[in-house]
Nucleic acid binder design. Structure first.
Lengths: 134, 134
DNA sequence: CTGGCTGCAAATCTTTTGCATCCTG
DNA sequence: CAGGATGCAAAAGATTTGCAGCCAG
């Protein structure tokens, strides 16, 4: 937690609660997930604070904003380079840490300077496979 | 255009205009882009019709809904398997048709049944590189 | 004809913003 | 103490929905 001071964050109780919720979190929560969870400790917590804090963390590179879900943003406190495996039914997201060697042929590159990549794998998770209805 | 009848689409003039706009379109337009373009021909065109038509096309597998842009959905009429290269500054999206062999180790797979994948490459396009201010 | 489609407006959902007050550093 | 952070409510966007009337098949 100390590291957050170093990046110029003012550590309010609300922020500590948000940071605590995010720390080690593998759920790739949405702003609402975070709001709901943290509201239990701070009934006055507002969405503005959640979004504010997330935006600040994002600027500092402490969380990633995922665009995986068409309906809302989700956030990932794991900033190590990794990919995602997404269940098409329940939207559960799993981290993939394998390394892939992805070159783009010069013709495809269209003059772009490539700075990164992200792979989304799609599938059906075990739970949804068993509940093979819907 | 004939193929659309086959998938049970009622071909109204509005839909033909939307389909015409999408055909061969490499811009990965948002609903608003489509609305604006098609409104020129149909001043009464409504967003509802655009969204309706896109949803119908998506169900039929005729367009892909891209989640690349955090702020809005974008649509891709190119349903051939391909990846995307995105300019971080201007959000321009380019199609990448290279093939990559992406296996997931059994341990990473977490019991998922994998059905597909999509790679997003990030970079800076030539135009934005030249205009090297923000 | 008839069911699906259109267009309008209102509703919903997510995210952002303005502003007075508060509190960390 | 000052400037950044909070919380509330209102605003802004994107998308969805209800519904009456319309038109392609």
């Amino acid at each position: 937690m100390e590291k957050y001071k170093d990046i110029g964050l003012k550590l309010t109780p609300q922020r500590l609660a948000i940071l605590g919720y995010l720390e080690g979190n593998k759920e790739h929560p949405s702003a609402e997930d975070i709001y709901k969870a943290v509201s239990k400790k701070f009934p006055t917590m507002s969405f503005a604070t959640v979004y504010n804090t997330l935006e600040t963390l994002r600027e500092r590179g402490e969380v990633l904003e995922l665009t995986i879900d068409p309906n809302k943003k989700r956030f990932d406190p794991n900033t190590k380079f990794h990919h995602h495996l997404i269940c098409l039914k329940c939207k559960k997201i799993i981290d993939i840490h394998s390394d892939y060697n992805l070159d783009i042929s010069k013709s495809d590159r269209a003059g772009f300077e490539i700075v990164g990549n992200h792979i989304e794998f799609y599938g059906i998770c075990q739970k949804c496979k068993k509940a093979h209805g819907s």
